[in-house]
Structures are given as structure tokens and as C-alpha cells.
């Protein structure tokens, strides 16, 4: 899946946050979006993850030769496919096209928002929303937990985890869904060095295994240098491609 931003603009309370941002995320790998605090990185990520509407501009996803784009001309987001317009089936239920698209991508928030239940059930949550249960789902959960090194804590209550472990659980929760694009918003902003290093190695392994395209934000320049295949800079609302690794 590829992602294209075209002329994205966003204002909050009269203040310009994003100005004419355009970019094509076309290769698998890790894209790192850098910028100072409050520069609009998270807003741009939320717009890309279809959780927020831009004031103008379009977000389009390309997969299998088709353009999948939410349509800003109608109140509720709808997905238009070039050839196949309509809803898709998921676990026997009809999904609105927008939801079907949103379920192919996942955003991990900087504050994870863990559910008040076990580590295992936190990871199972997204799968159960999709009607996925049983052995296949259990295998996905176990794999995701092993990938982030939390397999031994599967029965522990999620709210008793440390902040670093919580962040890893957030990533596991997303990975179990096997997203085609994984958005990570400041994944190491509030955790210790040890967990930062673990999360960086998780992101590197994801790249090596070609699991998903990763688009992440960070304000840590050295981390951006370590992880980025492509480094993007957001300054004064404008998006610039700084370098290709």
C-alpha cells in the first residue's frame, strides 16, 4: 500500500498548522517525520491515519492498482475505489468503505490508552472488533507479544505495566492487526533509555522483515538518523524531504 498527501492544509483557531503539505510515501521502509514541539507532526499523522479531517487537500491510499481515498465532499468519510465502489465484508458484517480502509492502517498514540484488562486481551481487542477469534487470532496475539518481548506478561493486568512496557504493548496491539501502514506518534517520548532501545530495535526488525510501511514522528534528531530510510522535516507548517538514507 502507498500513501499520497496532496496539498494538505489545517488550521486550529485561526492558526495555520499545516500548509500545502504534499508527499508520496511510496516505498516500504521507515519514514521519520521530525519537527519541534507543537509544529503539527501529530496532526499530520492523525490526518494520514484518517482520524482527523484536513481543512483542504486529499489523503489517498493506493493498493493493487486502485486508488482508495476518503471523499471530503460528503459529510461522513467514504472510500472511493476507481473500479469497485462499495462496501467490503468483514466477519460477516458490511463495513462502510472508510472503516474498511481505516482497518488496513493503524496509529499508535503517544499516550497508549491501555484498556483495563489483561495484556493478552488488550492485544486481542482489535482482532475481536474484526470478528477474529479462535486459534488463528491467538497465534497473531502470541506472535505480536513475542515480537515486543511481552510474552511472559500476557496474563498481567495491562495497567500495572511500566511506561516502556505500555508503549511496547501499544505496538503489539497494532502489530497483531497486521497493518499495511503503521503510524507511530512519538513512540519513545516518555520512556527510559532501555525501553527506547528495545522499541528502536522493534522498528528496525519490522523494516528487515518488511512487515509494514512505518511512518513515525520524533523530536529526537539522533533517533531519526538511526531509524529513518527517509527523513522528513515539518517547519512552519511545510513538509520537506530532508534526505534519503
Amino acid at each position: 500500500m502507498r500513501l499520497t498527501l496532496s496539498h494538505i492544509n489545517k488550521h486550529y483557531g485561526g492558526k495555520e498548522i499545516l500548509r500545502d503539505c504534499s508527499y508520496a510515501f511510496s516505498d516500504a521502509g521507515t519514514y521519520v517525520l521530525m519537527g519541534g514541539n507543537g509544529c503539527g507532526k501529530s496532526t499530520l499523522l492523525r490526518i494520514m491515519a484518517l482520524l482527523e479531517e484536513p481543512d483542504s487537500g486529499t489523503v489517498a491510499f493506493l493498493a493493487g492498482g486502485k486508488v482508495l481515498a476518503p471523499d471530503p465532499t460528503i459529510g461522513e468519510r467514504h472510500l472511493h475505489e476507481q473500479h469497485d465502489k462499495g462496501s467490503s465484508l468483514d466477519a460477516g458484517r458490511l463495513l462502510t468503505p472508510d472503516l474498511a480502509l481505516r482497518r488496513r492502517i493503524t496509529l499508535v498514540l503517544p499516550r497508549i490508552g491501555l484498556f483495563s484488562t489483561s495484556v493478552w486481551k488488550n492485544v486481542a481487542y482489535g482482532l475481536s472488533l474484526r470478528g477474529q477469534k479462535g486459534v488463528a487470532a491467538d497465534e497473531k496475539i502470541a506472535r505480536a507479544l513475542a515480537f515486543v518481548g511481552l510474552e511472559k506478561k500476557r496474563d498481567q493486568h495491562a495497567l500495572t505495566l511500566s511506561s516502556g512496557e505500555s508503549q511496547r504493548l501499544g505496538i503489539a496491539r497494532a502489530l497483531a492487526l497486521e497493518p499495511e501502514i503503521l503510524f507511530l506518534d512519538e513512540p519513545t517520548a516518555s520512556i527510559d533509555e532501555e525501553n527506547t532501545s528495545i522499541i528502536e530495535s522493534i522498528i528496525k526488525t519490522m523494516k528487515q522483515e518488511g512487515r509494514s510501511m512505518v511512518i513515525m514522528t520524533t523530536h529526537d534528531r539522533s533517533q531519526a538518523e538511526r531509524l529513518a530510510d527517509r527523513l522528513l522535516l515539518l517547519t512552519q507548517g511545510a513538509l520537506q524531504d530532508v534526505r534519503q538514507a
Binding site: 472503516l99 493503524t106 481487542y125 474484526r130 497494532a174
Partner: peptide, 12 residues
């Protein structure tokens, strides 16, 4: 944040 997290994971 719970509602936001649920939405990021694909909740209706």
C-alpha cells in the same frame, strides 16, 4: 484517550 485508542484500532 480510551476512545481515541479504540478508533485507532478500527472501532466503529
Amino acid at each position: 484517550i480510551i476512545a481515541q485508542a479504540a478508533r485507532t484500532l478500527g472501532a466503529t
